[in-house]
Write a protein that binds this DNA or RNA. Sequence first.
DNA 1: GCAGGTCAAGTCTAC
DNA 2: GTAGACTTGACCTGC
Length: 288
Amino acid sequence: MYRFGIFCSNENNSLSTNNTTRLNSLSFQKVEEKLKKNIEGLFGLLDLSVQNDYKLFRLGNSFVPFLSHENFSSDWLNKIEYLLDQTKERLKDYNIRITMHPSQFIVLNSPKQNVIDNSLRELKMQFWLCQKLGIKDDGVILIHTGGEYGNKDSAIQRLINTVNKNDWLKQRLAIENDDRIYNANEVLGICKELSIPMVFDIYHHTLNMSDFNKDEFLSTYKIGTPKIHLSSKGDGKFGNHAKFIEYQDFQNICELFGNDVKKIDIMVEAKAKELAVERLKKDILNFE
DNA sequence: GCAGGTCAAGTCTAC
DNA sequence: GTAGACTTGACCTGC
């Protein structure tokens, strides 16, 4: 069977790993309250994943709200440790790959040093969280390449330099092709150069097409299962994701990856979450 | 209880 | 130089 997964929450949002607060309401009490809620959501979502035979799950960015923010007091880290320890213990019962995907504000190729510094601080805390939760080595932390700044070659080189200077990033960092600037072929080149895995997004690929070699993509994974994103075009604006997956979009993946498609992790980025995956599974049974 | 305004962060485009 | 789009759900204030 295919290796599907969902991200952040379920369809009706009764289970979520993304409960957060506002900066001006930030307090330890709030952080603890939201973290507890997110942990509860996580295990609900993992149980749902077990029931539906999903193989991976992506944690919400706000799992620990404002973890990397300067207003997040350092002694709060010690005070939430007991919750993370408990979570780590419970996670041992699940065989589900957990990944993370920091927001668009994480940019490692910016010409502004403070933007890079802030991004590194955020990534450092996400790596810390992975370690605290005992997330295995295949739990990638996924980012986009960043901006173009009028000169793509030098922007790419800046990213490569940043990662090389911060070698710890290579333990988990992965890069995804985007829908506007960096196409799959360019991202593949960066990932090969850095010896880090690439995450292939087929919807972004259709919006930002390039000559993409799937075997080279697969070979960027020295450990773990290759990971791709599957979504369909939504209504309205450019790049919008649909509620469900068009069967044709799944077909496109099958055509591209051939027999390898059952060996890769497919993160379904559809707004209807598990309902979208279940509908897709039915479609597959009907069409195959 | 609900609707609508607003939210940490970056980049790019249009004016 | 700056406002708004991007994309997005969730918080939270005000009614």
